[in-house]
Design a protein around this nucleic acid. Sequence first.
DNA 1: ATCTCTCGTGCAAGTTTGTTTCGTTGATTG
DNA 2: CAATCAACGAAACAAACTTGCACGAGAGAT
Lengths: 159, 159
Amino acid sequence: MSRSTFSSELDSFDLAILRILQNDSTTPQREVGEQVNLSAPSVQRRIKRMQRDGVIAVQAAIVDPARVGLPLTIIVEIELKAETGGKIDEIKETFLEAPEIQQCYYVTGEVDFVLIVIVSDMAEYEDLTQRLFFSNHNIRKFKTFVTMDRTKTNTSLNI
Amino acid sequence: MSRSTFSSELDSFDLAILRILQNDSTTPQREVGEQVNLSAPSVQRRIKRMQRDGVIAVQAAIVDPARVGLPLTIIVEIELKAETGGKIDEIKETFLEAPEIQQCYYVTGEVDFVLIVIVSDMAEYEDLTQRLFFSNHNIRKFKTFVTMDRTKTNTSLNI
DNA sequence: ATCTCTCGTGCAAGTTTGTTTCGTTGATTG
DNA sequence: CAATCAACGAAACAAACTTGCACGAGAGAT
């Protein structure tokens, strides 16, 4: 089995390694190697390359928000004003800077952005809406969905 | 500084450790210790406990979906039929089992579920809608938002 | 076909990190 | 005040990571 000439291409070994690490990144390289039939150094070189190339974005500890005082997950749909053309990047930047906004998607359809916000209580969310939504003249309106249950919050992909 | 008598409570050391690990879980315990003013064994004991107690859900490699052949992120809003009361758990189970569904939130408001789906192309998404949405008689309707840009897909919390 | 260049590999040695042990300290309680 | 308990750090130890090196397979050129 051989690697493509493009360094950014992944072969079946790389995918097998990713399948393991996206479920548990603490798995020792030796054990990963055993599962994919590769030596530990080889596994390490592949991981290093995938980190360098951005295939692996980060290795992170995923924290349960309810256990650190952030029991409220809120999904927000944002609709911009029609004439808001060149200000998209500006709005994205605003959302990127807000630590309460965990995820932000720029979407097609009836709305323009979908946000996932994680806060400690409704007061904090109200404060956020004042700072980021009501005071932003490019936002026509927004809709709030309070989540009752975080049924599934995976980080792994179907690879 | 002391720990509460409840083993599941977190003190400021624990939070400091989490702040580091949720951004980079490969940080050596020794280095974490230096940053929070604790010895490496102490850091380790706290990490172990937080893993055991579920404060740290998993440590995972976060993979860029576009780099592994999954360039399409789709957000789906699902509205159930009114009489669908006791079948919520059944529907949740369906979503939990589907590997293309990365996230699922059960929400209040105009819709009942918000899903984040990651697939390779529209054909795969259409297939998913047939299998999970159209064939499910508890679903009244669903709305699809195709994302143009994954502006922010953090896993870290504002702690 | 043969040569050569490149790339990835495994092994082994060396380095760093993670883990366990053990004695001490400080706070709490009887 | 003594006993108890929980958490700590230093040191010893085990495991994992990292690096250097030589080998072998595949690609391209002659």
